[in-house]
Design a protein around this nucleic acid. Structure first.
Length: 177
DNA sequence: GCCAACGTTGGC
DNA sequence: GCCAACGTTGGC
């Protein structure tokens, strides 16, 4: 079986843990704890491999958006936060010798100069079958195709200069005040 | 803050 | 094994 790199999208509420938080973690690396959904866990446990690409998605907030990319640097291992009673994601059914929940480690790769809003993704015909865009989709860890990953990274490259000029315009507006 | 969609739980 | 009730997610 060939070991081809796979791609994923992982959601986080930026008010809880944003890509900027990740940027400040030691080694720009974090464990992805707190997943309490079996389907999402299974993707991490069974399919995520070292070197896989991750789209870091900011859910909730005013503008849900893909905020950047990360890479899987450690494959699935038990999520110890599940057996910590003080943890927000405590699960009394999980025990150290029967962990139930798993997590991976990811390392930040790039923060997009301009995040790609969900609204923009919806406008892209090449992305219409993305899991993220499916009505009612709530999976917090989901596969994306290599093509989808590539299209979004490419969008972020094009969005860069647009935002820069927007900034300039804003500055100019301030100046004239 | 609302609510649709979804996953989980528990009674039967 | 069905399904109603409930809790959660997440866009709007």
């Amino acid at each position: 079986m060939s070991q081809r790199r796979s791609f994923w999208l992982m959601k986080s509420d930026p008010g809880c843990f944003s890509i900027h938080h990740l940027a400040e973690c030691p080694g720009r690396t974090t464990c992805w704890s707190g997943v309490r959904n079996y389907q999402a866990r299974n993707f991490m446990r069974d399919q995520m491999k070292l070197g896989d690409g991750v789209l870091f998605y900011h859910s909730g907030g005013a503008t849900p958006a893909v905020a950047g990319t990360a890479v899987v640097v450690r494959q699935a291992y038990p999520d110890h936060t599940a057996w910590d009673p003080r943890d927000q994601h405590f699960d009394p059914k999980a025990l150290p010798d029967k962990p139930i929940w798993q997590m991976v480690d990811i390392r930040l790769e790039a923060i997009f100069v301009a995040p790609i809003p969900l609204e923009m993704l919806r406008k892209m015909p090449t992305l219409e079958s993305m899991e993220l865009l499916r009505k009612g989709s709530r999976l917090s860890v989901q596969p994306v195709t290599p093509r989808e990953f590539e299209v979004i990274v490419e969008l972020s490259r094009r969005a860069g200069p647009t935002r820069a000029s927007g900034k300039t315009a804003k500055k100019a507006a301030v100046k004239t005040r």
